[in-house]
Simulated scan of single mutants.
Amino acid sequence: MSALLIRGARLFDGDTWRDDAEIAVVGGRFVPAANAPAGTEVIDADGLLVVPGFIDLQVNGGGGVNFNDDPSVPTIERICTAHAHFGTTALLPTLITDRRETRTEAIAAGKAARAADVPGFLGLHLEGPHLSAAKRGVHAAAYVRPMENVDIKELVGAIVGAGPTMLTVAPESTSIEAVRRLVSAGGVVSLGHTDCDFDTALAYIAAGATTATHLFNAMSPLGHRTPGMVGAVLDSGISAGLIADGIHVHPAAARIALRAKRGPGRLFLVTDAMLTIGTDLPDFQLNGRTIFRRDGRLALADGTLAGADIDMLSSVRYAAEHFDIGLDEAIRMATVYPAEAMRVGHRKGRVAPGFDADFLLLSKDFDLKSTWIGGAKVYSV
């Protein structure tokens, strides 16, 4: 693999900005500029920004295909390619509630994608089918069901074989013991699509759940006497995904949540993107139902939201403009914080020596110029 030396940029390393910065890439990872070998290719980034590549932990689809449609390596490659055009350098293809056979196929595809080192593939997010019927949202009711021992065995296999794995479950359909077993195997258990009360949520957090899926959406709300799942997220140390499209969460609610969130967990950006990203499709099918695309919203005919029609670059811009956090923190919500949530913060999410060379070159107006994964350019304008 060739070496690179990036010079002259305004660089955001994950903590601070550095002007007229230099950093090198050797063997797919960042190294100090002084360690660049002779003959290194020089990238003159004068007038450009360098930021860490975005990390998206909830991606249903892109480029005209949803992961549920065809859970295979070519589908994963197509989704990763589509989102690289919007600055995402690592993502979790997300399988929503479906037939047992579909999940088995998805896990096999994840293992194969990991073995093939597909650019942009981080691991899997299995969202369901072990959810609350009351908060299933667009997830097909016919497939929502309790977790059984055979499911635990299959999910442990996914964790071991497919790399970092996020599992969205609801306490209504998943035992505390099951959570302990999945966490012990290395899985990231995320609470979501649940109507559970505050105390139940805290019990599952104590058992090892460390994240929550799309804060505010498909979960018991915050009340002053019944804090619900939302209250448990904000008053505990877990992390949570947040969809920044102005449709799933009102910006005022996001601002309140960001001010209220107790650490060490953080709120991080997810797109919850569907296959529409990178296409002009007007509508599509999901589990035999038509999802309509109108004015940035994806929904069933009855108005039930069905994922989101936004990319991560747009999400970062929206958060910076509407959440009162500034660009620096918006970038961290798409890089540092999701990396930490998936326990890969030691190698992804920053532009610093020792980290994977996943980065973006952008204009001063934050328009994407090129996307790089492991030091290889995978997209340029």
Rank of each mutant, 00 (worst) to 15 (best):
A84P: 09
H85D: 11
H85W: 08
F86M: 01
F86H: 15
F86L: 01
G87Y: 13
G87E: 13
G87V: 09
G87D: 11
T88C: 09
T88V: 15
T88E: 13
T88F: 04
T89F: 12
T89A: 10
T89G: 03
A90N: 14
A90E: 05
A90P: 01
A90G: 13
A90L: 14
L91P: 09
L91V: 04
L92Q: 11
L92G: 01
L92S: 02
L92E: 03
P93A: 05
P93G: 06
P93L: 03
P93K: 06
P93Q: 09
P93R: 04
T94E: 02
T94R: 02
T94N: 02
L95Y: 05
L95D: 06
I96C: 05
T97M: 09
D98W: 04
D98A: 08
D98E: 13
R99M: 09
R99T: 15
R99A: 10
R100Y: 08
R100E: 13
R100W: 09
R100H: 12
R100I: 04
E101M: 06
T102E: 04
T102Y: 02
T102V: 12
T102N: 07
R103E: 09
R103K: 11
R103Q: 14
T104A: 15
T104L: 11
T104F: 07
T104R: 12
E105A: 15
E105G: 00
E105S: 07
E105N: 04
E105K: 11
A106V: 02
A106P: 05
I107S: 02
I107P: 07
A108E: 14
A108H: 09
A108V: 14
A108T: 12
A108G: 11
A108S: 14
A109T: 00
G110W: 08
K111L: 06
K111A: 15
A112L: 10
A112Y: 00
A112I: 00
A112Q: 07
A113M: 08
R114P: 06
R114F: 05
R114Q: 13
R114E: 08
A115T: 08
A115D: 15
A115S: 12
A115W: 08
A115L: 14
A116N: 09
A116V: 05
A116I: 03
D117A: 15
D117Q: 15
V118L: 07
V118E: 12
V118A: 04
V118Q: 08
V118K: 11
P119Y: 13
P119M: 05
G120N: 14
G120P: 01
F121P: 02
F121R: 10
L122H: 02
L122G: 15
L122R: 05
G123K: 05
G123R: 07
G123L: 04
L124V: 05
H125P: 01
H125V: 06
H125M: 03
L126Y: 07
L126H: 06
G128L: 12
G128I: 08
G128N: 07
P129I: 14
P129Q: 11
P129N: 12
H130L: 05
H130Y: 14
L131E: 02
L131R: 04
L131A: 10
L131F: 04
L131W: 00
S132D: 13
S132R: 00
A133T: 14
A133I: 11
A133R: 13
A133Y: 08
A134F: 13
A134Y: 09
A134G: 10
A134K: 14
K135S: 03
